[in-house]
Every structure is written in C-alpha cells, then in structure tokens.
C-alpha cells in the first residue's frame, strides 16, 4: 500500500509545500532530496498553464479523460499536475489556474484515499 510513501509526500501534496534556499532565495518544488539547507515554504497555488495534454485511457486508479498540464507556478517552478473542473476544449495555454485539493487516487476498499493538488481555472478573476 506504500503507506509511508504517501505519508511522506503529504506536505507537497496537501499544501504545495516547496523549499526556499536561505541564501540564494531560489524556490524549488518539490523539496530537493537533500533538503538540509532548504527551508520549507508553502507556495501560493497560483499559476498558468504552460502546456497540456489529454490522457484518453488513464492508468488504473486514475480517471479517464484526465487533462494533464505543465503549470508554471507564480513562484517560478513548473510542475506536472492534473487539471480539474474544466473540459479539454476549454483549456488554453497561459490560462490562469489555481491549486485545489482533490482525490488523486482511490486505492480500493482496503486501501488509502490519496489526496493532493490539482489545478482548475480561477473561480473568481484575479
């Protein structure tokens, strides 16, 4: 069930927790594997769609017709995430999006429900 893996990732998945280098100010997401010098920082969840693609037949545990995107976060990093609350023909490059927490996967009746970040078009214009 990989309980420990999911537990270890909860900061980045639930709060979009990245890392900031105390000297250079560089922002990194997710936190680097060797994060000793970096401090945890929750990112704003605001971003724009850099690119996107549809996953017609998704892997087990994911929904079909998922729209995957590269999202450029306001703080700089580009991350891969699923879009939600939007149809494929509504997605545009440079479209502003915001982070929401949704179910990522359901690991079955004897497994975990995995929650994490997805992005959706802005509910209210910035």
């Amino acid at each position: 069930m990989q309980l420990a893996k999911h537990w270890r990732l909860k900061g980045s998945r639930y709060r979009l927790e990245g890392a900031r280098h105390p000297h250079t100010g560089a922002i990194c997401f997710p936190r680097p594997a060797d994060a000793a010098e970096w401090e945890a920082v929750p990112l704003s969840g605001q971003g724009v769609v850099e690119s996107f693609a549809a996953a017609g037949k998704a892997a087990d545990g994911f929904a079909d017709d998922a729209v995957m995107a590269l999202v450029r976060l306001a703080e700089g990093p580009i991350i891969t995430a699923q879009l939600t609350d939007v149809a494929l023909d509504e997605v545009k490059i440079d479209m502003p999006v915001e982070m929401v927490t949704r179910k990522l996967r359901d690991l079955g009746p004897e497994g975990l429900i995995v929650y994490g970040y997805k992005f959706r078009p802005l509910l209210v214009e910035r």
Partner: peptide, 13 residues
C-alpha cells in the same frame, strides 16, 4: 460532486 471530490476535499476548500 465531481469524481475527485468528497467531504474532505470540499471541507478543505
């Protein structure tokens, strides 16, 4: 609710 929503996700927002 959408397929990726439940009581927990709605409560968070």
């Amino acid at each position: 609710p959408g397929i990726d929503e439940d009581t927990i996700t709605m409560a968070i927002e």
